[in-house]
Deep mutational scan, measured.
Amino acid sequence: MVQRGSKVRILRPESYWFQDVGTVASVDQSGIKYPVIVRFEKVNYSGINTNNFAEDELVEVEA
């Protein structure tokens, strides 16, 4: 279970941040499909630095 402030590695192959490390900004408990919002240092092609992920697409590298 990841929690706010954890450092996580992204396992979603189609993601711009695949294999990159980001910080968990928040975790939604309402039961949505992609409840974990992760914030990154670098921006993607659209200038965005956050994205939603499912918990099984993340691996915690640092608490």
Rank of each mutant, 00 (worst) to 15 (best):
24 V>Q: 01
44 N>L: 05
44 N>V: 05
36 V>F: 12
11 L>A: 04
23 T>A: 03
24 V>P: 01
44 N>M: 05
49 N>V: 06
36 V>T: 00
43 V>M: 13
42 K>V: 07
23 T>S: 04
27 V>R: 04
61 V>L: 10
7 K>F: 07
30 S>Q: 08
1 M>Q: 13
28 D>W: 01
26 S>M: 12
14 E>D: 14
27 V>Q: 02
31 G>E: 11
43 V>H: 13
41 E>H: 07
1 M>F: 11
53 F>C: 06
21 V>A: 02
60 E>G: 08
42 K>A: 06
29 Q>D: 12
32 I>Q: 11
52 N>M: 09
40 F>A: 02
47 G>M: 00
28 D>Q: 08
9 R>S: 04
39 R>E: 13
9 R>T: 05
4 R>G: 06
29 Q>Y: 13
50 T>C: 15
53 F>H: 01
3 Q>D: 05
57 E>H: 01
23 T>H: 04
48 I>K: 11
53 F>K: 03
4 R>P: 15
61 V>G: 02
41 E>S: 08
18 F>C: 07
5 G>D: 05
54 A>T: 06
6 S>M: 14
55 E>P: 14
17 W>S: 00
35 P>C: 13
5 G>M: 00
33 K>M: 11
27 V>M: 06
49 N>S: 09
9 R>E: 04
22 G>C: 06
52 N>I: 05
23 T>M: 08
28 D>M: 11
15 S>G: 02
37 I>K: 15
25 A>R: 05
32 I>Y: 04
28 D>R: 06
2 V>W: 10
26 S>I: 07
4 R>Q: 13
21 V>L: 10
42 K>N: 11
30 S>L: 06
7 K>L: 13
46 S>I: 11
57 E>W: 05
14 E>Y: 09
5 G>K: 01
34 Y>C: 11
53 F>G: 02
58 L>C: 07
40 F>R: 02
17 W>R: 00
3 Q>L: 07
34 Y>G: 02
17 W>Q: 01
3 Q>V: 12
62 E>Q: 11
52 N>P: 08
49 N>E: 05
36 V>I: 15
11 L>G: 03
3 Q>F: 00
13 P>K: 13
22 G>L: 09
59 V>I: 13
22 G>Q: 06
7 K>D: 04
58 L>A: 01
14 E>R: 05
35 P>F: 11
38 V>D: 02
25 A>L: 15
31 G>K: 09
1 M>K: 14
25 A>W: 08
50 T>K: 06
16 Y>I: 05
46 S>A: 15
42 K>W: 07
50 T>L: 09
6 S>H: 06
35 P>A: 08
29 Q>M: 13
55 E>I: 14
61 V>N: 03
23 T>L: 08
38 V>R: 00
16 Y>D: 08
4 R>M: 12
15 S>H: 05
61 V>Q: 04
56 D>F: 12
10 I>C: 09
59 V>A: 11
19 Q>G: 14
47 G>W: 03
62 E>A: 11
37 I>G: 04
7 K>C: 12
32 I>A: 12
17 W>E: 03
2 V>Q: 04
31 G>C: 14
43 V>D: 11
20 D>W: 08
12 R>L: 07
48 I>H: 13
35 P>Q: 07
59 V>H: 07
2 V>C: 14
5 G>Y: 00
44 N>K: 06
56 D>C: 12
45 Y>H: 15
21 V>E: 04
47 G>R: 00
23 T>G: 02
32 I>V: 14
17 W>P: 03
13 P>V: 14
53 F>E: 02
43 V>P: 15
48 I>L: 13
44 N>S: 08
21 V>W: 04
29 Q>P: 12
29 Q>C: 13
60 E>Y: 10
53 F>P: 01
63 A>T: 12
17 W>V: 00
9 R>F: 00
1 M>G: 14
15 S>K: 02
59 V>N: 06
26 S>W: 14
30 S>G: 10
9 R>I: 10
56 D>N: 12
55 E>C: 14
6 S>C: 14
32 I>C: 12
15 S>W: 05
59 V>G: 07
35 P>N: 12
3 Q>P: 05
63 A>P: 13
41 E>I: 08
13 P>G: 04
6 S>W: 04
40 F>H: 01
32 I>S: 13
47 G>K: 03
43 V>L: 10
31 G>I: 09
19 Q>W: 10
60 E>R: 11
11 L>P: 02
43 V>K: 14
44 N>P: 06
60 E>T: 13
51 N>H: 13
38 V>Q: 00
38 V>L: 00
57 E>P: 04
13 P>S: 09
55 E>K: 09
22 G>V: 06
51 N>R: 03
24 V>L: 02
26 S>F: 14
58 L>E: 00
37 I>P: 00
47 G>L: 00
27 V>T: 07
55 E>D: 07
31 G>P: 06
18 F>P: 03
39 R>M: 13
46 S>R: 10
59 V>F: 10
20 D>A: 09
6 S>G: 05
1 M>R: 15
51 N>P: 01
9 R>Y: 00
13 P>Y: 08
33 K>G: 08
8 V>L: 00
53 F>L: 01
36 V>D: 01
30 S>N: 08
33 K>D: 11
32 I>F: 04
49 N>L: 05
33 K>A: 12
45 Y>S: 15
47 G>F: 02
51 N>T: 11
15 S>F: 05
54 A>M: 10
42 K>F: 07
61 V>A: 06
